[in-house]
């Protein structure tokens, strides 16, 4: 396979990895809030976070492009021009995969027995200790599984990154777009090879995520 494929794959992996790490940092407090707290406008907020799941990726990409573009508010506020750049791809990917990560994290937190947290409080233990010794050991399989799903989802995205990044080979051409371009050019043999790499990678990630979910459930059945 040619160099362009490896460059595109590497770009996809980098965007997915960075987006997943940001999702992990952003998603955990948000999911905790959604799982355990009630506040006005909660359902609206949840709906907004879930929106990327139902919007056509091109529509989401279009709005992100407007937001990040030369006339957009992001440039005016921060002075950063992220459209058609790596940063823009990551930004769009975070938004695109947020529902996946958030839903998985929230499920992980909801599966946690609230009694454990309450008893920890009555034992006079500071919150950081409860987080470190009780919450994380019990929910990390769920958190990691959600992050892996978000990673795989980002790896496979097409519409959003095409709108936000274009398809600049070696710069913003991600592997899914690279395959599309090959098919457009009727280069089926190369497209088939590239697609099989992506297929194998995605399958491996999903197997890992399922394994982790089962591990997370194991504690539940023993209490």
């Amino acid at each position: 396979m040619d160099l362009l494929f490896w460059t595109a794959l590497r770009l996809s992996l980098e965007v997915a990895l960075l987006a997943s790490l940001i999702l992990l940092l952003l998603g955990i407090p948000l999911a905790w809030l959604m799982a355990f707290h009630r506040f006005p406008g909660k359902y609206l907020l949840e709906a907004v976070f879930l929106l990327p799941l139902v919007l056509p990726p091109t529509v989401l990409g279009f709005y992100v492009l407007l937001f990040l573009g030369p006339e957009g508010p992001w440039l005016r506020i921060t002075g950063l021009s992220w459209a058609f750049r790596f940063e823009g791809l990551v930004f769009a990917s975070v938004l695109f995969s947020l529902p996946f990560a958030l839903t998985a994290y929230r499920e992980a937190f909801l599966a946690l027995d609230r009694n454990l947290l309450e008893v920890a409080r009555t034992l006079g233990v500071p919150p950081w200790k409860t987080w470190g010794r009780v919450v994380l050991p019990l929910v990390w399989p769920g958190l990691l599984s959600g992050t892996l799903l978000a990673f795989a989802h980002t790896l496979g995205e097409f519409g959003v990154v095409l709108m936000v990044g274009g398809s600049i080979p070696g710069k913003t051409q991600m592997v899914s777009i690279y395959i599309y371009d090959l098919v457009q050019a009727l280069r089926f043999e190369e497209a088939s090879k590239a697609a099989s790499v992506l297929l194998f990678l995605s399958l491996a990630i999903l197997v890992a995520a399922r394994t982790l979910e089962a591990k997370g459930r194991a504690w539940k059945s023993t209490t």
Partner: peptide
Amino acid sequence: ERRPVGYLPQDLALFP
């Protein structure tokens, strides 16, 4: 956290 009580809920809530 500041009450000197020992609380045993119905399901005991032992850390599994």
